[in-house]
Design a protein around this nucleic acid. Structure first.
Lengths: 340, 340
DNA sequence: AACGGAGATGGGAGCGCTCCCACATTAGTT
DNA sequence: AACTAATGTGGGAGCGCTCCCATCTCCGTT
């Protein structure tokens, strides 16, 4: 059996075969309730016999919806973040979209020029909505998309008071949990390597760290805070600085596993043992954490779940649903390993 | 009743504004040469003034091409492979597609059911071509897609004699380079941890290992070959077996970094030092390699470049171009670090 | 001066759907 | 028995483009 490739069946042909009108077939295809059971089965059989699949372009043109969603990832970030982050996110989004029979359009944006091209795509009405990953504090894209009248959901937020719908993880809780754990292990000179202060996620984790100290009755000490940039090298530098300023520190909360790896290198250079001399906690629970020596205690984010949630929120919004909450913060979880 | 695009301008409106016919505007938009310079600028101005962007659905329907490409990744593999692999691949594909102004449709396939659904999408003529990542030896998808009349390019191949166009890295060369390097360091009892024998990539790397031994005048010894499954735990088990069978081995070529990490663990358990007692080489040059202690010597694959090449080949094929070579094998490169 | 042809241009004819209105039927009501 | 809902159903009217053919110019030729 060879497929008549040029002759893909059309709605019209299905209708003829089933002995009904075009409208009726359309109703069956789209699951309208206003069709008799008998007709429905007749049409279903014709569809099966002809191997009919609705033409997406025609559908989009006539119905003005594409059944596709764009996921935008800034290329610069893709390199920065713990690598598996985006794959996990994609996995979650993809799973949720597949269930809803939607397509995923992935866009890596690597330059201003490409950002503009992307806006053109949006204007060309290729997608029904947009998912935005790791948006910067000054990124105009979310607002631009809204101006185009397209639904958006972001991963993370640009500031405390983010107007655009988002899904974030509990970064404050992450910092608090890390500090609480270190305190529980008897540490009291707890330092932190933060992310770049212009990123909300970095500020939030730092805020959690401070809250954790306060809850434990420990006095905050700005000497124990040093900024990295979410890279390994940045973590190393920040750690050197901390050791220099506060040789008596006995624990470090690094705002990412990758920075923790850098910090671990600096500690080794300085002859400090982990965890005997200095306990270490990271964030992300990435594969890197498991492979470190000793394995790194880390705060896990539910990345895949964030992806799913984002997709779900967006689809709900598109469907004009109740949009029960434009903002969602998912819990994080401490994974204890040998580093403290 | 969501985002009603109020008045997106149409071709017709642009034509009216420029004082020309529909056909002429279409010609300008599509860069046809049969338009006078004067008319061209007039139309270009009208387009700019109205902020016109062609409607993609209408284009696809009328012109029967979508300007979109699907990239298919089997979900099971996504977890298995060194994590950054697929992100790098996506990056390459995305970069190339962006240059050609094509869209990337990403599909993670996680079940038989989803595979079938994907075939439906293809039949719905949503894409102009398909890119297939990490195809199994018995995967029917490549042939099914060809039956649908869609161009395909795969990443890797299912066997030595792969009929479908593909881009692969030089896995045989990878094995040879690793062995040659180890021999150059004075090792002579060189073992290998392979991938699952039913995967071509595993067999190719093993073949390269054997070729490398032969070129160095070393006798092959089946006791020195043990199969893993590309997981860390698999690497650990295979290494234990090797140590058990051949305690005198002085080097190991692991067919992936992740397995090398497992092997490293087994070596540590057995009290063997790396590189003093046993030298270690992996494949992938993943971040894991850099973070290991000591850092792992590894054979780098040009993953992003593979992605670009795949996309380029596919686009060429779609354009009906000269399709200069349906198969492409890109070179690998040894990255020397402390593990040997 | 008449003619052929190349280059530009306009616009009809779809592409395969969804929307929606008109038109049956059939059932329910007085 | 006449009348009003529901409930199903058919098919016209587009959606915004690309294709392609008929036209119209404007030359160079004979």
């Amino acid at each position: 059996m060879s497929g008549r490739q040029s002759g893909r069946p059309t709605l019209e042909q299905v209708a003829a075969r089933a002995g009904v009108g075009r409208g009726t077939v359309s109703r069956v295809i789209n699951g309208s309730p206003r069709v008799s059971e008998q007709t429905r089965t007749a049409v279903a059989r014709a569809v099966a016999e002809l191997g009919y699949v609705p033409n997406q372009a025609a559908r989009a043109l006539a119905g003005s919806r594409t059944d596709a969603i764009a996921l935008v990832i800034p290329e610069a970030e893709a390199r920065l973040f713990a690598e598996p982050y985006f794959l996990d996110l994609i996995r979650g989004v993809s799973a949720e979209l597949a269930e809803a029979d939607k397509q995923l359009l992935l866009t890596l944006v690597r330059s201003e020029q490409e950002r503009q091209r992307f806006e053109q795509y949006l204007a060309a009405q290729r997608v029904d909505g947009v998912l935005l990953a790791s948006v910067h504090g000054d990124d105009p894209l979310p607002d631009r998309i809204r101006e185009l009248g397209l639904p958006v959901v972001m991963n993370g937020r640009r500031s405390e008071a983010e107007p655009v719908p988002y899904v974030d993880s509990d970064n404050i809780g992450a910092g608090r949990a890390a500090v609480a754990h270190l305190v529980g292990r008897g540490r009291s000179r707890i330092a932190t390597v933060t992310g770049p202060p212009d990123m909300y996620v970095a500020r939030a984790r730092l805020g959690g760290y401070r809250a954790g100290l306060a809850e434990a009755g420990l006095a905050p000490d700005e000497e124990l805070v040093s900024a990295g940039d979410f890279t390994e090298e940045g973590g190393r530098r920040a750690m050197r600085l901390l050791l220099d300023r506060s040789p008596d520190l006995d624990a470090v909360f690094a705002a990412s596993d990758v920075m923790a790896a850098g910090a671990r290198g600096a500690l080794r250079e300085a002859g400090r043992r982990v965890p005997e001399d200095v306990a270490l906690v990271g964030v992300d629970d990435s594969p890197v954490a498991r492979l470190m020596d000793p394995p790194l205690t880390s705060v896990r984010q539910p990345i895949e779940e964030m992806g799913r949630t984002m997709a779900r929120m967006l689809l709900q919004h598109i469907a004009g649903g109740p949009e029960d909450a434009p903002k969602r913060v998912l819990p994080t979880e401490l994974v204890v390993r040998g580093s403290c």
